[in-house]
Design a protein around this nucleic acid. Structure first.
Length: 732
RNA sequence: GGGUGCUUAGCUCAGUUGGUUAGAGCGUCUCGUUUACACCGAGAAGGCCAGGGGUUCGAAUCCCUUAGCACCCACCA
């Protein structure tokens, strides 16, 4: 056998990142991300076990950030690993219409460019514009997901607002409506006067604020308030029943006193909700605009009056101040009180928290309003159930279902500590307000006609029906994601094969928003858990450890890093050293380090190839050869075991060190002598065989972590070691 | 007010069920042009694993406690 001359080496000393797009195209064209193709091409057995995972759909509000990149890297590792192991593997992509966030964004753009509001351009036109924006955003996101190397099944792509998913939403709504779990009621809601919509409890962000605390003279009492502009209608004065300072006042006493706009009659109310140590221990209440006040008012059947309208302006009750926005009204009112001698004193530097709409909206004003709710504490008869410990026909509440599947262990949360967080949230959960007064999203499938109400998946027959103008909370549709993407409510083999999904991988920040809602929807609607495992990754933070967010503008562009260091390096930097549930601080140094590792993998393989000369001579292995092979086998076992328990971090770390500091530094070095001018052909063959075998094995193990370099190296490997055309589907 | 996490080498962080001299990347220092790789190799310095107490033959790891930081939840006017 004529040895190759080393200068004819087929490979450069550097792996060429520019070829990543070409490699991705090969994967895509192969169709191997689609389990049906894998079966057809006999890469996967028909009877193979399924492995399924849904991609948490990115919002179509912009571009991918590093957090998405971490998520894609982690999931792709799981998916590639399971596919290579021969499982019937599917990873389902999609995007989320993110109703309020997207509309808010587009409204902002329109207002900036044209100075027009949504009311100026109208419902249909606004939706058209949003769809246009969403489409662009979608295309960018998809191309970014591909850049990361995601071996995702594009043939199954879904959108939370597409036709199939919309049917799912209407079906879900109707089922819940018919079961009495969805109801319409006037309740206290979080109203955003800026976006003109309600917001769920979970979408509120509390911001610390310092503001003056005003002490006002209310007849014989002094009351403290941070919001004097809400006090016009106050006609109840509340104190703790066992507060000795006010024992002379009895519950129900009427007191005539002079107030902002003239004399009023105040009624004394005794209620234990009062904190005696706060201020003077006395307060007046504004039930319409405060949840605590509302509860007190409900307990004693007190009057409730609206003082602030939905755009944030004072109403008739405010007398001379009516029509003025609360922000402008405050100083005027304080001034008037001062003149009337109603202002006792002002305490500066009082810190409290203000509720804001985290989706780019304004300051929340609690309001009482008719809305649609999901009743989480109402009993219903469970439909066909495959959930362990829940029987078909059993009486349960949604809250009980959500709790049960975690306590029973049917869903396993990694890391475990988040179970506690989850339970805490469930225990505090109130009925879920699902209606929004924005226009982009799933319209509430309820129609009205002269007092008649009809809920259905389609508009009722006959003329004169008018559909409810409200749209649904975006999480209502994403809650269906694990099964709506598999074809539900229609029967489908995808659903039969892949539900419940194997694992849900997402950031811990949307445990409540999304994970909990999927559990609610899936257990109720399909009688199954949505997934068997929940793997929560940490948040990728900036240099100061702050959460990266579009609104803060501190996002790192993962594409920039991919351009300079390659996708594999970025993937490794985001996965290795990141323990589940712990935050990841992104630094370019780390990426550079892993880029060097990519080069190492490239060059070590190159060396092995340069010394690979097939021959008929039987290799004669030395003791060290056998030891080296044995050591690799051990690494293989460890990596497999770690990946099985979703410890990508550990598996990656082990591989990294093995490949670099054992295989490259020790094994390769120790064979150099034997490969060069060795008269003992059997010994040389042994050396080259050991190197080739370990290389092949290592490339397979490394592939889920760094698919581009490994696939690229694989192309140069001799055909006789390959079982398939792409490393992507080589047997593990 | 409840809850969770973090505090380990100069910097950024790993260390799953407690087990021999505590690890990585980057940085620092010394040496090195050898059949791949300088995006490299060989080696070195650098740590009372936040403080205190306890359990144990043995603790970075388990328990208690103190402090600082971060985050989550909650109706304090």
């Amino acid at each position: 056998m004529e040895p190759l001359k080393s200068q004819e080496s087929p490979m450069d000393t550097r792996y060429d990142q520019k070829k990543e797009d070409t490699i991705y195209a090969e994967w895509e064209n192969s169709g191997y991300a689609n389990p049906d193709v894998c079966i057809k091409k006999k890469v996967t057995k028909t009877a193979a076990k399924p492995f399924s995972i849904v991609l948490p759909p990115p919002n179509v509000t912009g571009v991918l950030h590093v957090g998405h990149a971490a998520m894609i890297a982690t999931e792709d590792i799981m998916v590639r690993f399971e596919r290579m192991r021969g499982k019937k593997t599917v990873w389902i992509p999609g995007t989320d219409h993110a109703a309020i966030a997207t509309q808010s964004k587009v409204e902002g753009i329109i207002y900036k460019k044209e100075g027009k509001t949504r009311y100026d351009i109208g419902r249909d036109e606004l939706i058209r514009r949003i769809e246009e924006f969403a489409k662009e955003s979608h295309d960018i996101i998809i191309s970014q997901i591909k850049k990361m190397g995601a071996s995702i099944d594009w043939s199954r792509e879904a959108y939370t607002l597409d036709e199939k998913r919309s049917l799912g939403v209407r079906t879900a709504f109707k089922r819940m409506f018919d079961d009495g779990l969805i109801y319409r009621g006037a309740r206290m809601v979080n109203w955003d006067p800026k976006m003109q919509t309600t917001v769920s409890d979970d979408e509120i962000e509390w911001i610390d604020e310092k503001s003056p605390l005003y002490y006002l003279k209310y007849g014989p009492f002094t009351i403290a308030t941070a919001r004097p502009e809400t006090k016009f209608g106050d006609k109840y004065v509340v104190m703790h029943p066992s507060d000795k300072r006010y024992k002379e006042y009895k519950h129900g006493d009427k007191i005539k006193l002079e107030w902002i706009n003239g004399p009023v009659t105040a009624t004394v109310i005794k209620d234990k909700a009062i904190d005696m140590s706060f201020g003077t221990g006395v307060m007046t209440i504004t039930p319409w605009h405060d949840a605590t006040d509302m509860e007190i008012a409900e307990r004693h059947s007190l009057d409730k009056e609206q003082i602030i309208d939905y755009s944030g302006k004072l109403m008739g009750l405010a007398g001379e101040f009516s029509g003025i926005h609360i922000k402008k009204a405050r100083p005027l009112i304080v001034e008037k009180m001062k003149e009337k001698g109603l202002l006792d004193h002002i305490e500066d530097d009082y810190s409290h928290r203000v509720a804001t709409n985290m989706r780019g909206g304004g300051i929340i004003e609690p309001q009482v309003k008719e809305q649609w709710f999901v009743a989480v504490n109402k009993e219903f008869k469970m439909g066909p159930s495959k959930i362990k410990g829940i029987k078909t026909g059993q009486k349960v509440t949604l809250k009980q279902l959500m709790r049960h599947v975690i306590t029973s262990g049917e869903i396993n949360i990694v890391p475990k500590r988040f179970e506690k967080t989850y339970f805490q949230w469930i225990d505090n959960l109130r009925d879920w307000c699902i209606s929004r007064q924005i226009w982009y999203g799933h319209r509430v499938p309820v129609w009205y006609k002269k007092g008649e109400v009809n809920c259905g998946t389609d508009a009722p027959k006959g003329a004169g029906w008018e559909q409810d103008p409200d749209t649904l909370d975006t999480w209502f549709s994403s809650g269906l994601w694990t099964f709506s993407t598999l074809g539900w409510p229609k029967k489908s083999s995808d659903f039969e094969t892949f539900h419940p999904t194997s694992v849900l991988e997402t950031g811990y920040d949307i445990l409540f928003f999304w994970v909990a809602r999927m559990i609610l929807m899936s257990t109720y609607l399909v009688g199954e858990v949505p997934f068997k495992n929940v793997y929560l990754h940490g948040l990728v933070r900036d240099a100061q450890g702050r959460k990266m967010s579009k609104s803060l503008g501190n996002t790192i562009d993962p594409l920039g890093l991919i351009d300079t260091y390659g996708a594999d390096a970025v993937r490794l930097a985001l996965v290795i050293g990141a323990a589940p549930g712990n935050d990841i601080k992104m630094s370019e140094d780390r990426v550079r380090g892993y880029r060097n590792f990519s080069t190492k993998v490239w060059n070590a393989s190159r060396f092995v190839l340069m010394n690979y000369f097939p021959s008929k001579v039987k290799p004669k292995f030395t003791k060290d050869d056998l030891k080296n092979i044995k050591e690799f086998e051990k690494i293989k076992k460890t990596v497999t075991a770690e990946l099985e328990r979703f410890d990508m971090n550990k598996a990656g770390d082990v591989l990294y060190h093995y490949f670099w500091h054992t295989f490259a530094d020790k094994v390769i070095e120790s064979t150099k002598q034997r490969l060069k001018d060795n008269p003992n052909e059997a010994d040389r063959m042994a050396a080259q065989t050991v190197l080739m075998d370990i290389s092949i094995g290592s490339l397979k193990l490394l592939h889920p972590f760094m698919p581009f370099v490994t696939e690229s190296v694989w192309k140069n490997m001799p055909d006789e070691v390959k079982k398939r055309d792409l490393l992507m589907v080589e047997p593990w």
